[in-house]
């Protein structure tokens, strides 16, 4: 694992219509790391996530992804950065008017000059990777929630981005499906060296997959603690951290 930070967030302040939700948030994500953002409901995880993928501009501070500051750059720079990332949304956000295969082919067709036949083969390979072979021609409305998540993952990985972002990947999945998704994440991280940034509540999966985690807090409007989740779970002395990991207050 190389030790360069691929994402650096510095002194980020974020909010909506003048309400500050997060302030003085700084952290870095190393290349090849599985990085988890945790926190109680309403503490700003989704807000932070949307900032990281460029959907919202911060009030102040910078977000540097692979050397480019998306908080201050222009449209062209943002597009360049977006090419390096893939996003799996909480609702999978598959395009409902397209089949699974077309969903996955969309970015490939846009950004490469592959022939239709090669794209077809590539899509099949991606679907096999997420255990969805045979579902090429299904519409998103015709598959289950867990399958949608996996199809969304296949689409997010279509161009093998350097960084994958996940918003609550296991929300709404049964323990088995969520475990499968976790294993898939671990495999991808191992085999392709993809950096992963994951927002999640699932403590079990955090300890299973994460190399490092940050815990956001609503009252502090920022990071409560930053470190290896297994270490934090077993050794943290901070009462709030303990409360979070033990599910008690």
């Amino acid at each position: 694992m190389e030790k360069d930070p691929i994402i650096e967030v510095k002194q980020l302040r974020a909010g909506y219509n003048g309400n500050t939700i997060l302030e003085q948030v700084s952290f870095g994500v190393l290349k090849g790391e599985v990085f988890v953002i945790m926190g109680g409901s309403g503490c700003g995880k989704t807000t932070l996530f949307k900032h990281l993928v460029g959907l919202i501009k911060p009030v102040s501070g910078s977000i540097i992804i692979d050397g480019d500051d998306i908080a201050h750059g222009d449209e062209t720079l943002l597009r360049k950065v977006l090419r390096k990332i893939g996003v799996l949304y909480q609702s999978a956000a598959l395009f409902n008017s397209m089949t699974i295969a077309e969903n996955i082919a969309l970015p490939i067709r846009e950004y490469t000059d592959l022939s239709e036949k090669s794209i077809d083969t590539l899509v099949k390979m991606k679907l096999t990777l997420v255990n969805l072979d045979g579902y090429e021609n299904y519409l998103p409305s015709e598959i289950s929630g867990g399958m949608k998540k996996r199809a969304g993952l296949a689409r997010a990985m279509a161009l093998n981005p350097e960084i994958l972002f996940f918003d609550e990947p296991s929300a709404g999945l049964d323990p088995v499906a969520s475990n499968e998704l976790d294993n898939l994440i671990i495999q991808l991280n191992k085999n392709l060296g993809t950096t992963m940034v994951i927002v999640t509540h699932e403590l079990r999966s955090v300890c299973h997959i994460a190399h490092r985690a940050i815990l956001l807090d609503k009252n502090k409007k920022g990071i409560l603690v930053d470190g290896d989740p297994r270490y934090l779970r077993d050794h943290s002395t901070d009462p709030m951290v303990k409360a979070f990991f033990n599910g008690r207050s």
């Binding site: 949307k50 993928v53 460029g54 959907l55 597009r79 977006l82 090419r83 990332i85 893939g86 996003v87 949304y89 909480q90 609702s91 956000a93 598959l94 395009f95 409902n96 969309l106 970015p107 846009e110 950004y111 972002f165």
Partner: peptide
């Protein structure tokens, strides 16, 4: 509302 527009955006469209 189903995040598809967000997805388009982050896919670089």
């Amino acid at each position: 509302i189903s995040e598809e527009v967000d997805a388009l955006f982050t896919m670089g469209f």
